[in-house]
Amino acid sequence: MKKFEKGKMVPVPSMAIIPERDMDSPPVLECIHLGIEFGGLKAVDDFNFVIGKTEIAGLIGPNGAGKTTVFNLLTKVYNPTHGSIMLDGIDTTGKTTVQVCKMGIARTFQNIRLFSNMTVEENVRVGLHNQVKYSTLSGVLRLPPYWKQEKVFHDRAMELLSIFDMQDMAGLYAGNLPYGAQRRLEIVRALATNPKLLLLDEPAAGMNPNETAELMENIVKIRDTFGIAVLLIEHDMKLVMGICEGICVLNFGKIIAKGTAEEIQSNPEVIKAYLGNNSMEG
């Protein structure tokens, strides 16, 4: 893990939603006036957002609010037209998706993007790609580094799969897994890249209430074990209100509210954006 450089420390804005345990450490992610335009359409506009080192943050909003676009901006699938993103105090302007991944942002996808022709274990091994290395030559000629590192690959992959008790699925093809298991595998694969910030795009979509409850426990467990920050997009309000320490509400590409679960639930702007009445379930 890269040590944070004192000189580049970013002052924490007063409006940040940071739990007390992160008070002394600088934020892991800071978006400053972030925005992107697609031919005049402002998909995301003036997005200011800060996440603490070990915070679980939620990004919610009605359909088409620009939530996934924010994820695509963070991982450089799109290049922002305005503003900048600081990861652990380092500006990511001009970086590519691969470089940003190496810097410590990992993500899952709303429409699952597993390598469906590979086994579960191989999927995780691709996630470990930059963590465990040997040259192409030793791979082709089966030199000693190959055997040594492939064993490391196997051990690490199994260790990571054990988070979700998926070791016995290791030999199955990822495309044949049930939907819930595919979502869990995506999280494991993202964790394999050793991130500082984990982006989860609708992790509970398609899961039943039991699975969702289990997922909530596991997200907290992942945060505690790995000491990383988590930013999640989710429509399941039970999950969001249950585990997110800070919530940001997006509507038409603009932030309409930021705060804790209680603050968000009672915010009239949010209620108006969602339903126009008093209920938050939906």
């Binding site: 991982t75 699938v77 590519t96 998706t97 691969v98 991944c101 190496k102 990992a106 993500r107 996808f109 993007r113 597993l114 390598f115 469906s116 022709n117 590979m118 191989e122 091994r125 691709v126 996630g127 790609h129 930059n130 465990v132 290395k133 040997y134 192409t136 791979g139 082709v140 000629l141 089966r142 190959y146 590192q149 690959f153 694969r189 993202a190 394999a192 890249t193």
Partner: peptide, 28 residues
Amino acid sequence: NFIRSRTGRAVIAIRDNRIAAESMGVNV
């Protein structure tokens, strides 16, 4: 041997899903 090595896995990952492979830090 190439297919069943770290490099080969990266190549197959790119074929299966380029965006996911890039997000996993694989240099396409």
